[in-house]
Simulated scan of single mutants.
Amino acid sequence: MPGKGPTLKLVTRAQLGWPASAAPAQATTRGVKVHYEGTPVSTRLLTDHAACIAEWKAIRASHLANKTENYSDVAYNYAACPHGYLLEGRGIGKRTGANGNQDLNRAHYAIVGLVGSSGLVTPTDAMLGAIRDGIDLLRQHGAGPEIKGHRDGYATTCPGASLYAWVQKGAPRPGTTTPPTEDDVSLTAAQAKQLAELHDVLVPYAGWQYKGKDEETDAYAYLRGTNASVKAVDAKVSALKPVDLTDAQIAALAEKVAAAPGLADAIAEKVAQKIADRLAE
């Protein structure tokens, strides 16, 4: 939550002299994506907060002038500056325009760190803290637990090497080595042991490899023994204690599986092809 670290330093649209955002409303997302400017950014921002405000206003002006994209407002929900200020963009409850296309925009809100491809390229701890403040603020108003980089799901180098490395660590607040407790997705030793036991039980029966006509590896032999195998697996799984995972841990594990899109379909296609090849012999 904002406030767990230093006090949230928010610069509102009203303070920026902007009217209410005309961006489409969107109450919930799967989480937040982190961005950078992707262009040269002056190191002057490090010592002059007024330059940060000017930079943010210039980004909005350039977006509104972009007739190709036809932005209704600055593309991001928030920006974070090197001095630790969270600068309001579209704000809470508004669909972003930054993630690449409408499906991606609906999936995640967007926060940009005021760093770029040259000049100012490394975020300060204060900037990381402000991004984290923005993430926590959006989570209080409909954002889910996911924290991703713009490059996740879209062909781009955004948010740059430094910010993306931080995102991959879970976007921890500066001064900590892990995300806040409520976002902790690490497994206890007991949970890891239980998952390993489930893995050892299920994997031998989860797939098979056709090696020829030998009875022990023949597809038909495998299919004939399926019922007995399923019963054996069911008995072993039933004997294991349930794995008590938090919602955040479940979401993190699901995200790891989702990181390999089409994997299950690809495996199914290969199995189906092997069976078809065997029947054609």
Score class of each variant (00 low, 15 high):
44 R>I: 03
40 P>V: 09
27 A>Y: 07
27 A>N: 14
36 Y>S: 14
34 V>M: 15
62 S>K: 08
63 H>N: 15
28 T>D: 14
54 A>E: 15
62 S>D: 10
50 A>N: 11
33 K>L: 05
53 I>K: 06
34 V>N: 08
43 T>V: 07
54 A>Q: 08
34 V>G: 08
64 L>Y: 02
52 C>G: 10
56 W>K: 07
63 H>Y: 08
31 G>H: 05
30 R>W: 01
58 A>T: 01
52 C>F: 04
44 R>L: 09
27 A>D: 14
38 G>I: 01
63 H>T: 08
57 K>A: 04
66 N>Q: 01
35 H>I: 01
56 W>S: 13
40 P>Y: 10
31 G>D: 14
52 C>A: 15
30 R>F: 08
51 A>E: 06
53 I>T: 13
51 A>K: 00
30 R>E: 14
64 L>I: 01
64 L>W: 00
41 V>Q: 10
48 D>A: 13
66 N>R: 03
37 E>C: 03
57 K>H: 03
41 V>I: 11
50 A>G: 09
66 N>I: 00
36 Y>N: 11
53 I>E: 06
65 A>E: 10
59 I>F: 13
60 R>E: 12
43 T>S: 10
51 A>M: 02
37 E>H: 04
38 G>K: 09
52 C>P: 06
28 T>A: 14
31 G>W: 02
47 T>R: 07
45 L>N: 13
45 L>G: 11
41 V>S: 11
38 G>R: 09
41 V>N: 10
61 A>D: 04
59 I>G: 04
48 D>Q: 09
30 R>L: 14
60 R>T: 06
37 E>A: 06
62 S>W: 01
38 G>Y: 10
29 T>A: 12
46 L>P: 09
48 D>E: 12
42 S>L: 05
30 R>K: 13
57 K>G: 02
61 A>E: 05
34 V>C: 12
54 A>L: 05
56 W>R: 08
66 N>H: 00
28 T>H: 15
29 T>L: 14
48 D>F: 07
50 A>I: 02
37 E>V: 04
45 L>C: 12
35 H>E: 06
55 E>R: 14
41 V>G: 13
66 N>M: 00
38 G>V: 02
55 E>T: 05
55 E>A: 11
60 R>A: 05
53 I>R: 05
57 K>P: 00
66 N>A: 01
55 E>Y: 15
47 T>D: 11
65 A>F: 03
40 P>M: 10
38 G>P: 09
60 R>S: 03
27 A>F: 04
30 R>P: 02
28 T>W: 10
27 A>P: 06
35 H>V: 01
61 A>S: 02
51 A>G: 09
33 K>Q: 15
53 I>G: 09
51 A>H: 01
58 A>F: 01
56 W>P: 04
31 G>N: 07
36 Y>K: 07
35 H>F: 04
40 P>C: 09
45 L>F: 13
32 V>W: 05
49 H>P: 01
60 R>Y: 06
64 L>M: 07
39 T>N: 14
63 H>E: 15
43 T>K: 12
47 T>P: 01
52 C>L: 05
46 L>R: 14
65 A>L: 09
36 Y>V: 05
50 A>L: 06
48 D>P: 03
38 G>F: 07
62 S>Y: 00
39 T>D: 12
31 G>V: 03
38 G>A: 09
58 A>P: 00
31 G>L: 01
46 L>Y: 13
44 R>N: 15
50 A>Q: 15
38 G>Q: 12
66 N>C: 00
52 C>R: 07
63 H>W: 06
50 A>P: 02
35 H>Y: 06
